[in-house]
Computed example of a mutant assay.
Amino acid sequence: MKLMIFGCGFSGMAIAKAFAAAGASVGGTTRSHDKLDQLRAAGIDGHIFDGESLSPELMAAMYGATHLVQSIAPRESGDPLVNIAGSSLRTLMPQLQWIGYLSTVGVYGDHKGAWVDEETVCVPVSGRSKERLEAEQAWSDLGTALNVPAAILRLSGIYGPGRNAFVNLERGTARRLIKKDQVFNRIRVEDIGGSALFLSQRKLGGIYNVTDDLPGPPQDVIVEAAHLMGVEPPAEQAFETAELTPMARSFYGENKRVSNAKLKAAGFAFAFPNYPMSLAQMWQDGRWKI
């Protein structure tokens, strides 16, 4: 098994680690030469991809790949990899057996705190979520055309070692924003890696919510982390009067509880099914900084 990851960032690195542990060889792309060195130091066959063209070296790496993960955000013009390679993907990757596309639960839009699952009609609010939904369809259509299973992984708020409430509290950037009845789902980054491997090994396509079991108010996560650290949580702030970037404010315009029942019914077991146990594990083993 040989995996190629387009956009080997925080989630991509977790996927690379999961596949490598299963014996796969892994290649990945990044936009910067600094990050290229990091990929190669992690044992990943790294390549530069600017979203505009495929280098001869990258095409050579793609040619031998059996599995593809695409995590690069779409643009107004569409998914960059579909735009460049879609019609010729079978020629570029003749051994391709499985496609994974990393999307977001943002495609569901606002459901006033109600539960949603993979059958729920998507009513995306933001432009970026609308672009994600279009990219999902493009990859699903491409998988059908190639007769290759294409799994759409809809991810909730991603956290893990090095990116979590502990880090924000230590930096003094954690905020306890209060908006009545607001809830979010989350997902530990290692479970993204594990779910991608699980779906690929079973050659499963279709849409899957990759999210935890415990949607809840965002301020509760800050309080839980502060308790574990033995520090006082930041003071509460009313969402309505808080200074936020337009993007940060837009996240609070979507309120839903996302079900992971389909992925669990397929047989996947989450290593970190809820944030209290996940935060406790990170704090106890000291990996929260890494």
Rank of each mutant, 00 (worst) to 15 (best):
D213Y: 09
A269S: 13
L146Q: 10
E57C: 00
T144V: 05
A22Y: 02
G28H: 03
T211D: 02
G106P: 03
G157I: 04
F10E: 03
Q284E: 15
G230L: 09
S278I: 06
A145C: 08
S55V: 03
K17D: 07
P233I: 12
M4L: 15
H47V: 04
E232K: 15
A22W: 04
S103H: 03
E52V: 09
S25I: 09
H67F: 11
G9Y: 02
P161T: 10
L96Y: 08
A41L: 12
I207C: 13
S53P: 01
S103K: 02
A16R: 06
V223D: 12
F166A: 08
V123P: 03
N147T: 12
Y63A: 14
Y63H: 15
H33Y: 12
N168M: 15
P273Q: 06
T104M: 04
I5P: 01
L204M: 15
L204V: 01
D191A: 12
Q38S: 13
A42R: 10
M93L: 02
K289W: 09
G43E: 08
A20C: 11
V121G: 01
M229A: 10
L146I: 12
T30R: 00
V69M: 05
R171K: 15
P74C: 09
L146F: 13
I187A: 07
S11V: 14
E170Q: 15
I72G: 06
A20L: 11
V210E: 00
F239E: 00
Y275C: 01
K262R: 15
P273Y: 05
V82G: 01
P215A: 10
A42N: 09
I158M: 04
D79K: 08
M93T: 02
G230Y: 04
L39Q: 02
W115P: 07
Q182A: 14
M277P: 04
A41R: 14
L81Y: 04
G23E: 01
L204I: 11
T245S: 15
D212P: 07
N168I: 03
P234G: 11
S71E: 08
M13H: 03
F268Q: 07
F184W: 11
P124S: 00
